[in-house]
Every structure is written in structure tokens, then in C-alpha cells.
């Protein structure tokens, strides 16, 4: 499944980068290069071969772990991208962690207090959460917490290994900004799943066996309601990765999103190809793991 996904993604990425009006040879030698020099370079780079040959040669290198050389820096793309990916994953993991810690309890509270004030507050929060794009919330957050309050540093990235607390302080705003939309979405999903589960016959049956509300919630309802959350969170990783691009740009975090923006602006084809491929792979792997986890937790799956 992952293999097929990456194959399709590689096709798309290659197709898009091929149609891009950017000539790798011109980019390397500059606008003033002689036609002869350009031709010679094209030949050595294999750019004169038919497109499908170029594609398979590129794919063959990718399969071997060679993601190509950046047209901008002249360095291999792979190591730079993976290093950037590491920073982005740190950001993503903190965001998912924060989201889970907040969204699940919020969803549960809204579901068990359905129709009450708590439920309305949670649904207001979830509507507010999806009201603004990340770059707006990020900008406002910087304005309020960095410029006015001076509680947190506005932008920048400090590795945790260098200065742990400084690094955390730099991560707080980006993590919060990324989490907002995810919290809104996931808490809504948790609520609706739990409301559905609480209306099932087996929950009623458990209550009529004399089980207390709390016991039924813990032992019977949550387990079934939270299972689908795994899938939802995994699917949201796609959104998360998009958010990472914007947030890294605003907070000047040298992650894969920033690398991609730079690559896109510079039309650095190998870097774009590598970056998109890595993002798609990350998404696919997360979803693959989520599927396995789901099947492992829900033993019914194998029989369906």
C-alpha cells in the first residue's frame, strides 16, 4: 500500500516538476551561459533523454536512497531534508501531544454533558478553532505574547540539546498555533463518536446491569469511542504537515516546511521532489501504523 502510494506520489511530483518552466541547466550555469555549455551539461545530467527515462533513472536513484543534488546549494538533498524533517517531527509530535491532552477530555466532557453549558462552550471553542488560518493565529499570538506581554520569544529555533528550556520556550507558540485547528477538529469527532456510543444498546444494557455511570464510561464507552480517533488523528497528520509549512515560515524554524518553501521559491527541482516525497511518505507511514494499531486494538477488524 505504502509502495503504491509513494509510486503515485513520485509520478505526480515528477510530472509537476517536469512541467515547471525551470531549466535545471540554466539554473546551474546562469542566464548568460552559452548554448554549447548548456547542451553539454544537459547531456551529463541526462536531461536530453526522454522523460520516462529521466523518471526511471530518478526513481532508481531514489530507491537507492539518493534523492539528488540541490540546484541551489550544490549539496545532496537527502541529508539536509532529513535533518529538517527531524525538527519538523519534533514540532509535530509536541503538537499532537498537546492536542490529545486537550481534545480528548474536551470531547468527552462535551459528550457526557450534552446539551449543557459545558457542551456549548466546547462547541464554541471548536467553531472558533476552525475560524482562522494558522498564519493569522500565529501573527496574533506573536503580537500578543511576544510583543505586548514579552512572555515568549517571537521567532527562531534553538535545538533542545543546546538549551533545553530556551528550545521549549521557542516551541510553545508554534506548537499552540498548530494545535488549535487539530484540537477543534478532534474534540468534535471525539464528542460525536462518544455520543453515538452512549446511545448504543450495549451501553444501556451495561447501565441496566447496575453498572455505575463512571464504570460504564470507562470500561464500555471510551474504549469504543476513542478507537476511531486513531484513524482521525492519522488523517489529520496531512493537515498538520500543511500547518507545519506555514508555522515554520512564520516562526523561522528550519524544518522541512521551510526547506520546501525555499525550494519552491527557488524552483530547486530535486529539493522539491525530495521534500514532497518525504512528506507523503511520513503521512503514509503514520496512516499505516494507525491501521495496524487499530486492527490490534479492535480484534473484530480481522473478521470483517
Amino acid at each position: 500500500m505504502i509502495v503504491y502510494t509513494l509510486f503515485v506520489v513520485s509520478l505526480i511530483v515528477f510530472a509537476i516538476t517536469q512541467i515547471l518552466p525551470a531549466d535545471a541547466a540554466v539554473m546551474m550555469l546562469g542566464e548568460n551561459a552559452t548554448p554549447e555549455a548548456l547542451d553539454a551539461l544537459r547531456q551529463t545530467m541526462g536531461l536530453d533523454a526522454p522523460i520516462w527515462q529521466q523518471y526511471f533513472s530518478w526513481l532508481w536513484h531514489v530507491v537507492q536512497g539518493d534523492l539528488g543534488t540541490s540546484l541551489r546549494t550544490g549539496q545532496p538533498v537527502g541529508p539536509a531534508m532529513f535533518e529538517a524533517l527531524g525538527r519538523s517531527l519534533l514540532l509535530a509530535l509536541f503538537s499532537i501531544g498537546l492536542m490529545l491532552v486537550l481534545a480528548i477530555p474536551l470531547g468527552i466532557i462535551a459528550a457526557i454533558r450534552r446539551g449543557k453549558i459545558a457542551d456549548m462552550v466546547v462547541s464554541l471553542v471548536s467553531y472558533a478553532g476552525v475560524a482562522l488560518p494558522e498564519f493569522v493565529t500565529a501573527t496574533i499570538a506573536v503580537l500578543v505574547f511576544a510583543d505586548w506581554m514579552k512572555w515568549l520569544p517571537p521567532t527562531g529555533y534553538v535545538p533542545l540539546t543546546e538549551d533545553f528550556f530556551g528550545g521549549i520556550a521557542h516551541l510553545v507558540l508554534p506548537v499552540c498555533v498548530i494545535s488549535i485547528i487539530l484540537i477543534a477538529h478532534v474534540s468534535r469527532m471525539v464528542r460525536s463518536e462518544l455520543v453515538d456510543v452512549l446511545h448504543t444498546d450495549y451501553i444501556r444494557a451495561a447501565r441496566l446491569k447496575g453498572m455505575s455511570r463512571g464504570h460504564v464510561l470507562r470500561r464500555h464507552a471510551l474504549r469504543n469511542a476513542l478507537l476511531p480517533t486513531i484513524t482521525i488523528v492519522a488523517l489529520d497528520v496531512g493537515y498538520l504537515l500543511g500547518g507545519v509549512i506555514v508555522v515554520e515560515e512564520i516562526f523561522a524554524i528550519p524544518g522541512i516546511g521551510r526547506q520546501l518553501i525555499v525550494a519552491i521559491q527557488a524552483r530547486d527541482l530535486p529539493a522539491i521532489q525530495a521534500g514532497v516525497l518525504i512528506m507523503a511518505a511520513t503521512y503514509s507511514i503514520v496512516n499505516f501504523i494507525a491501521d495496524i494499531l487499530y486492527a490490534w486494538l479492535d480484534k473484530r477488524i480481522q473478521y470483517d
Binding site: 444498546d201 450495549y202 444494557a205 441496566l208 446491569k209 464500555h220 469504543n224 480484534k299
Partner: peptide, 18 residues
């Protein structure tokens, strides 16, 4: 469940599947 209990219509929905 102790002094008064109940048997339901459809055992496939009245038992928790997990």
C-alpha cells in the same frame, strides 16, 4: 442487576463488541 434485571432483544447489540 441485583434485585431486578433484564434480558434484551438482540444479543448482538446488547453485548459490548470489544
Amino acid at each position: 442487576g441485583r434485585r431486578i434485571s433484564m434480558v434484551f432483544q438482540d444479543p448482538s447489540t446488547s453485548l459490548n463488541p470489544t
